[in-house]
Design a protein around this nucleic acid. Structure first.
Length: 547
RNA sequence: GCGCCCAUAGCUCAGUUGGAUAGAGCAGCAGCCUUCUAAGCUGCUGGCCGCAGGUUCGAAUCCUGCUGGGCGCGCCA
């Protein structure tokens, strides 16, 4: 935002100095105080090609910029940086512009006219979501929010399979528990069955509600009944959990529909026509080695059933055919193996794989009191996402799961998450928001009203300027986070924003200051409130008015 | 063995796509509330950016090779 105030001037000066510049001038925000508000290395980048010393070239450029009331200082520093220090008036102008954005502050239209499909969660209905699923849920939903905030038409999608072996095993597991509940204790529980407590819960419910009917059924019918009831139970559980996290999908896509529509068969056929499919050992293979992948993979088993790979390819093709400009997949690191196969598949079918963006998040470790907490999905003592939400709250769950870069292993500190105090980073942000709301309430009580026309030139404290500077970076930060599909960038930004506000709050008295100053500071606080609120909304975290 | 990810302060992590003296939080130490929320603020302590080379004006960042850890490598998803 600051750049537009200086870029044209510098561009002209560069041309005058004999530089050929294509594209915008690169700017950075110096981290060091005393290096100005904005910095460019343009002279260092081009010094060599026109045979000048970097510092000399930088000086030449600086000399070519006409004095302006907007620029307080323009100087050459270090090996050849050009540092720009704006006058306070620039910040006052920026704050005025930011205020005019109202509740839309932080919103961008850089994705306008484009559509994006984000597929996340996508757990099969074989059980409740476990705590580790929280990362996929939170990352996916936050990315969807980010794209929406940048103007994309966003579709949130959940892909599931309710027809495979896993579902049969779910039905069988429930069936056996049910038989036990009905008194047939001689049936053995399947080796690789689902051991979770919820299986027992479902079985007990079925026994009491449909015991007589089930007794009358054949084993196959009863098992099918159990499978169906199990699926319904699991889906209800999953949706309830997602609801608690404020996650709502637009589309639930059933893998099964790809068979009904003939898309799976068509995919095999088209790959075959391109010479990428062959039969071996009774199975049908996808010749991935022909497109540069390390090994061929089975897409239809000798039993006639497809492996997950085939419908996955058909599914991605379907998403691309639905016309989304961008198709985003959110996968855990344990599913990384499918990515090259699926991409190779859709590429072989003639689609541009640049439209597909795969976010792979690393695994989560839960830690308490310095000890790693071990949970095994099959042990029966699983740690569900519901348990986690109950323990630490939905806001903390969402925030903790997105506060680290997706590519790094996430250590989820349960002790820290449970603290409702100053050590907990979520509260630091919410506290800043609540504090501002409190002041606005108090101002209202005192009859002090928000004045959009307030004279902002009285804001000259370093804390005030720093806070405005932070606010001015909000939109570009949201754009960058969306562009790179990096939710944690927002969390980092909001921490800095909250810090800048707390500093301002501490040093600059608002209520009771000189009327002009009070008015200007109140406006600054309110713009900060809206930015903080929108940032928290992007993260799907609550925005309490008081704490 | 092969593929992907990671390695930065005692701990957990940032680092604006290659910039200046590498930053936060927590932990530790020392301060700040008769005034808008102290869930806050200020200061101090703390570093071979895993190791070794390379690329260039300049590398935590890019390339190569190691070391250590995570996740995968199925006619499971």
């Amino acid at each position: 935002m600051m750049q537009k105030y200086i870029e044209a001037e510098l561009q002209a000066a560069c041309v005058a100095a004999g530089l050929q510049i294509d594209g915008p001038i690169p700017f950075g925000v110096p981290k060091q105080q005393g290096h100005g508000h904005l910095s460019t290395n343009i002279a260092m980048m081009h010094a060599k090609q026109i045979g000048k010393q970097p510092r000399a070239l930088a000086q030449e450029i600086v000399d070519g910029v006409a004095p302006s009331p907007l620029i307080a200082k323009l100087e050459v520093a270090g090996p050849g940086f050009i540092n720009v220090t704006f006058s306070d008036a620039v910040y006052h102008a920026m704050l005025r512009d930011l205020n005019l954005l109202g509740d839309e502050i932080g919103r961008s239209d850089c994705g306008a006219g484009r559509t994006a499909n984000i597929e996340y969660v996508s757990a099969n209905p074989t059980g409740p979501l476990h705590a580790g699923h929280g990362r996929n849920c939170s990352v996916g939903d936050t990315i969807a929010n980010l794209l929406a905030w940048n103007g994309y038409g966003v579709t949130r999608e959940y892909y599931f399979n309710n027809a495979g072996n896993q579902m049969n095993m779910l039905g069988k597991s429930i069936y056996v528990r049910l038989q036990h509940a009905l008194g047939n204790s001689d049936i053995e529980f399947p080796e690789d069955g689902y051991h979770g407590e919820y299986i027992q819960e479902i079985a007990t419910a079925l026994a009491s509600e449909h015991g007589e009917d089930l007794r009358a059924m054949s084993a196959d019918d009863a098992m099918a009944f159990c499978r169906k009831a199990g699926e319904a139970w699991c889906f209800e559980s999953i949706k309830r959990t997602l609801n608690a996290l404020n996650i709502h999908h637009d589309v639930y896509f059933n893998e099964d529909s790809l068979y009904g529509s003939g898309k799976v068969a068509a995919t095999v056929e088209e790959l075959r026509q391109r010479g990428l499919v062959y039969e071996k050992d009774g199975a049908t293979w996808f010749a991935l080695t022909q497109v540069g992948n390390p090994q061929d993979k089975v897409i239809i088993k000798s039993t006639g059933e497809p492996t997950y790979r085939l419908p996955d390819i058909a599914y991605h093709r379907d998403k691309l055919e639905r016309g989304f400009d961008t198709v985003v997949d959110i996968f855990g690191a344990d599913h990384i193996a499918t990515v090259p196969d699926v991409l190779a598949g859709v590429k072989a079918l003639g689609f541009d794989t640049d439209r597909v963006r795969v976010v792979i998040h690393q695994m989560v470790t839960f830690v308490e009191d310095g000890q790693v907490v071990k949970f095994s999905k099959r042990s029966g003592k699983s740690f569900t996402l519901d348990d986690l939400i109950e323990e630490v709250g939905a806001d903390v769950v969402r925030f903790f799961f997105i506060m680290r870069a997706v590519g790094t292993h996430l250590e989820f500190d349960l002790g820290l998450a449970k603290e409702e105090g100053d050590r907990n980073p979520v509260f630091y942000l919410q506290y800043a928001h609540a504090r501002i709301c409190s002041i606005l309430r108090k101002a209202h009580e005192r009859g002090v009203t928000l004045d959009t026309e307030a004279d902002l030139s009285v804001l000259i404290d370093a804390r005030e300027i720093e806070l405005i500077s932070m606010l001015s970076r909000f939109r570009s930060t949201v754009e960058r986070a969306a562009e790179n599909l990096e939710p944690h960038v927002i969390a980092e930004f909001l921490r800095d924003l909250a810090g800048a506000y707390h500093n301002f709050y501490h040093d600059c008295r608002i209520l009771g200051a000189e009327p002009a100053l009070e008015s200007a500071r109140l406006l600054l606080a309110d713009v900060t409130r809206r930015a903080m609120r929108n940032g928290l909304l992007i993260l799907g975290v609550g925005t309490p008015d008081r704490m």
